[in-house]
Simulated scan of single mutants.
Amino acid sequence: MSPLRVGVVGVGVMGADHVHRLATRTAGAELVAVADPDRGRAQALAADVGDAISVHADPLELVADERVDAVLLASPGAVHTEQLLACLERGLPVLCEKPLTMDAESSEQVVRAEQELARPLIQVGFMRRFDPEYAELRSMIGSQRWGRTLVLHQIHRNLSVPNPRFRSEMIVRDSLVHEVDCARWLLGEEITAVQVIAPAPTSHALEGVADPQITIFEMASGAVVTNEVFVNSRTGYEVRCEAVGESGSAIIGRPGSGIYTTAVDETGGGWGGRIVPDYRERFARAYDLEVQAWVDAARRGDVVGPGSRDGLAATLACSAGMESLRTGARVEVPQAPLARC
């Protein structure tokens, strides 16, 4: 099979990371184009990784480039709708970093446009599904080795957020969205209601920003998921998850210790050491596996991992979360048809 010729839209922190990943450690892929409104930054990055890479200031020019077989979207969520629709019109496979779009209406528009095609083309960048620990935890939950899973505890902490425009709503839409997808995927069911609770904010938060946030998901089975998102923790990047069943539990994300369970045939242990600074290090392996799986599937004419309907389901849950953040009330989540948990 010929290599998949990939164009990357958006060369900020995540986009640049993907550019290096595609250029140096993704089998079966050839990086052929990059696009970013900051053409100088895009040119510098292209020069750093290859000689024959096209540079575009307009992302839609990259989508129209005949050399491009597939597109990785690492652009801001506000421009995803237009870019995704352009990719679908050209029949290009897309790996779209979260969120799919910024609101339910535009996410539904994208899902409907994809449904009109002969096959699905969109994979959404919920990379935790490709993380080996998360995959192992999902397998353990599915095996019911400790009976039904009754409670899921998720922790998501960042060292800091330097963006002065990062507001309370973005903690829900851009950070909690990962917990939304993980809850659906790990438990294999939908979120039916969301409630966001805002404790007293850290002194490190910007004025008026509710940080940290505690969010409760009610799941279709009656299971409950608690989520702490703290984007100015000042300690490092920590993502942990604990599944609590009827007769045991398991924890992932403990630095340096691998998966930790309380099942009767397992023992735990202590830990002391370094906390990684950001998501690129914590989930480096997951990103590698995610992009490789996307490339392999696109070359086969297939889609793996979370699709556009999963992106829509996440948007619906996050929209309910933003409403709860505004009102403090429990908000029911509309259900996305045919979403794949």
Score class of each variant (00 low, 15 high):
Glu105His: 10
Trp146Asn: 04
Ala223Glu: 03
Pro337Arg: 08
Gln83Cys: 09
Arg112Lys: 10
Arg282Trp: 10
Pro337Ser: 08
Arg285Lys: 15
Thr235Asp: 05
Val303Leu: 11
Glu190Ile: 05
Glu242Ser: 12
Val304Thr: 13
Thr226Met: 05
Ser168Leu: 00
Leu4Cys: 06
His204Leu: 10
Val55Asp: 11
Leu31Thr: 12
Asn227Ile: 15
Pro201Gly: 08
Gly236Thr: 04
Gly77Glu: 05
Val276Ser: 03
Thr81Arg: 15
Gln213Gly: 10
Glu290Gly: 02
Asp211Leu: 01
Ala200Asn: 13
Leu325Gly: 00
Ser247Glu: 04
Ser168Gly: 06
Val172Arg: 01
Gln144Asn: 00
Arg234Pro: 03
Asn158Val: 09
Gln109Cys: 13
Ser249Ile: 01
Val225Gln: 12
Thr226His: 08
Ala57Gly: 13
Gly50Glu: 05
Ile275Arg: 06
Glu207Lys: 04
Ile214Gly: 00
Val124Ser: 02
Glu136Trp: 05
Pro99Glu: 08
His153Cys: 14
Ala74Cys: 11
Val34Glu: 04
Gly256Tyr: 00
Arg173Val: 06
Arg240Val: 09
Gln144Trp: 01
Ser139Asn: 14
Phe230Trp: 03
Arg145Trp: 09
Ala243Cys: 08
Pro59Met: 03
Glu242Asp: 07
Val63Leu: 01
Ala118Gly: 13
Arg138Thr: 14
Ser175Lys: 02
Asp288Pro: 02
Met1Phe: 07
Ala317Asp: 01
Leu121Gln: 09
Arg157His: 06
Ile251Ser: 09
Gly270Asn: 12
Asp103Asn: 10
Met102Cys: 09
Ala193Arg: 13
Gln43Glu: 15
Val304Phe: 03
Gly328Glu: 00
Arg157Gly: 04
Gln83Thr: 10
Ala336Phe: 01
Leu100Gly: 12
Gly268Arg: 02
Asn163Gly: 05
Asp296Asn: 07
Arg67Asn: 04
Ala250Phe: 10
Gly248Cys: 01
Leu60His: 14
Ser107Asp: 14
Leu206Gly: 08
Tyr134Glu: 11
Ala70Gly: 02
Ala64Lys: 08
Ala86Arg: 12
Ser106Cys: 12
Val333Leu: 03
Glu281Phe: 11
Val11Met: 07
Gly7Phe: 07
Gln43Tyr: 00
Glu242Phe: 05
Gly188Ile: 06
Ser139His: 14
Asp302Pro: 04
Ser324Arg: 00
Val209Ile: 07
Ser324Val: 08
Ala339Ile: 11
Val19Asp: 04
Gly253Asn: 02
His204Asn: 03
Pro37Leu: 06
Gly188Asn: 02
Leu31Phe: 05
Gly311Tyr: 09
Val229Gln: 00
Asp38Tyr: 11
Leu31Pro: 04
Arg240Gln: 14
Ala314Val: 14
Val79Glu: 09
Gly10Ala: 13
Ile197Phe: 05
